[in-house]
Amino acid sequence: MSELPRDLPVWERRAVRLVVRDRAGLVLLFHTRDPDHPRLGTWWELPGGGMDPGETFARTALRELREETGFVVTAAQLGPPSWRRRASFVHRQSRHVQDEVVLTVRLDADAPDVDGTDRLDYEVEDYVGFRWWPVPEIVAGRERFYPGRLPELLPSFLAGEEIDEPFELWS
């Protein structure tokens, strides 16, 4: 792992990210910002979040999806956690260091609307929008994404490849 900046208190955790696909194969991304760090601008990120004590990857995925989108799915709609990564980024007043897994979720609807009623307070402030993206537009995208290598790794991940991504110092 590369040297972490000594800019903020470090918070280590395990997390789950979700590649949410609708019936047509579009991918849900949140348009995001961090009000405490306006220099970061905005970016597009996969839904997901930290694991609570005792949670499995699947339980975290189901909880985070419901909280952030309002979508209620079953564990049978989740793919395996076949993309593993370690990343660091600043968020609010701490530096997160996360061991993440990424898994897929397949919805039985076309580009459903997102319901953010159950979001945490900071998520309400951070998420400024969402969009259902065709995979080729993510791959060719010139936008900023989290994970940073999403455009590069998404096709392999969706093809079922196991991915062990090296450490990413995202911000």
Results as ranks from 00 to 15, higher is better:
Glu123Tyr: 15
Gly49Ile: 11
Asp110Ser: 10
Trp170Leu: 11
Trp83Val: 06
Gln77Met: 12
Ala76Arg: 13
Arg6Tyr: 15
Arg6Leu: 15
Asp52Cys: 13
Pro38Lys: 06
Arg23Tyr: 12
Met1Trp: 04
Val10Met: 10
Glu143Thr: 06
Tyr127Ala: 14
Gly25Ile: 14
Glu161Ile: 04
Ser2Pro: 01
Gln93Asn: 14
Ala111Val: 08
Phe167Asp: 00
Arg33Ala: 07
Ala109Met: 07
Glu162Arg: 13
Asp7Ile: 15
Val27Arg: 01
Ala24Phe: 08
Trp132Lys: 00
Thr32Asp: 06
Leu18Ala: 03
Asp164Glu: 13
His91Asp: 12
Arg23Trp: 12
Gln93Gly: 10
His96Ile: 12
Asp113His: 08
Phe30Ser: 00
Tyr127Met: 11
Trp133Val: 11
Val101Pro: 00
Leu62Phe: 05
Pro136Ser: 07
Leu107Asn: 02
Asp36Ile: 09
Arg14Gln: 13
Val20Trp: 02
Leu40Arg: 07
Asp121Pro: 15
Ala111Asn: 02
Pro35Ile: 11
Glu100Ile: 07
Val72Pro: 00
Leu18Met: 09
Leu26Arg: 13
His31Cys: 06
Arg39Asn: 14
Glu45Ser: 05
Phe167Leu: 02
Val105Leu: 05
His31Gly: 03
Glu64Met: 13
Trp83Ala: 04
Pro112Trp: 12
Leu62Trp: 03
Glu12Asp: 11
Val105Lys: 01
His37Trp: 15
Pro53Cys: 05
Leu107Glu: 01
Phe167Cys: 01
Arg142Ala: 07
Asp99Pro: 00
Arg149Pro: 00
Leu28Tyr: 03
Ser171Met: 07
Arg149Phe: 04
Asp118Gly: 05
Arg13Lys: 14
Gly25Cys: 11
Phe157Thr: 03
Ser88Gly: 11
Arg21Lys: 11
Trp133Ala: 08
Met51Ser: 03
Leu4Arg: 04
Pro80Asp: 07
Leu65Glu: 02
Met1Gln: 03
Ala15Ile: 04
Ala87Arg: 06
Gln98Ala: 09
Trp132Met: 07
Asp34Ala: 08
Val20Ala: 01
Gln93Thr: 14
Ala111Gln: 08
Phe145Asn: 00
Ser171His: 10
Pro151Ile: 10
Phe71Pro: 00
Leu158Ser: 01
Met51Leu: 14
